[in-house]
Simulated scan of single mutants.
Amino acid sequence: MENTVVFEEPITAQKCSENLSFVEDSIYVIGGKWKLKIIIVLQENGNIRFNELQRSIPGISARVLSNELKDLELNGFVKRVVHADQTPVVVEYISTDYSRTLKPVIIALSDWGKTHKRKIKENF
Rank of each mutant, 00 (worst) to 15 (best):
E9H: 12
A84G: 10
K117A: 09
S17N: 12
E18M: 11
E44H: 01
V90P: 00
T4P: 01
V64E: 05
E122Y: 08
K35Y: 07
L102N: 03
A108N: 05
N51G: 04
N47T: 05
K37N: 13
E24I: 13
W34F: 07
V41M: 08
N75E: 14
K103E: 12
R100L: 09
T12W: 09
T4I: 11
V41N: 03
G76K: 03
R118Y: 05
K33R: 15
I48L: 10
V90M: 06
Y28L: 14
L42I: 00
S95Q: 04
T101D: 10
S95E: 13
V78H: 01
I27T: 07
E68N: 02
I94T: 15
E18P: 00
W112V: 11
F124S: 12
F77N: 04
L69D: 00
R49D: 05
N123C: 10
Y28I: 12
K114Y: 11
I39E: 01
M1L: 11
P104R: 06
D85S: 12
I120T: 07
A84D: 14
A108D: 05
S66M: 01
H116E: 10
I94E: 15
A84F: 12
N75D: 06
H83I: 01
D71Q: 00
C16T: 11
S110F: 11
S21T: 10
E44R: 09
R49P: 00
S17M: 08
I60T: 02
I30V: 15
S21Y: 07
K33C: 06
I60C: 01
K119D: 09
P58G: 02
S21W: 08
K79T: 14
I40M: 14
V105Q: 09
D85F: 03
K70V: 11
D97A: 13
D97M: 08
Y93H: 06
V41R: 05
D85A: 05
V90S: 01
A62S: 15
Y93L: 03
S26R: 05
E68V: 07
G113K: 10
N75S: 05
V29F: 05
K37I: 04
S56Y: 00
E92D: 08
Q86H: 11
E92R: 04
Q86D: 13
K119I: 10
N123S: 15
A13F: 07
V89H: 04
P58R: 07
V78Q: 01
L36A: 01
E92V: 08
M1D: 09
A108F: 08
A108R: 06
K114S: 13
V5C: 09
V89D: 00
Q43R: 14
L36G: 02
E68Q: 13
E9W: 03
E68H: 01
Y93S: 04
R63W: 03
L72Q: 00
R80C: 08
N47Y: 11
V41D: 02
L102Y: 00
Y93Q: 02
V81W: 01
N19W: 12
S110T: 15
R100I: 05
Y93I: 02
I30P: 08
F22Q: 14
A108Q: 02
N47V: 07
V29N: 09
N51R: 04
V91W: 06
N75C: 06
A13H: 12
E18Q: 13
L65D: 03
I106E: 07
G76P: 06
L72G: 03
T101C: 11
Q43M: 15
K103M: 13
I106G: 04
V82T: 14
V81N: 07
H116C: 07
T12V: 07
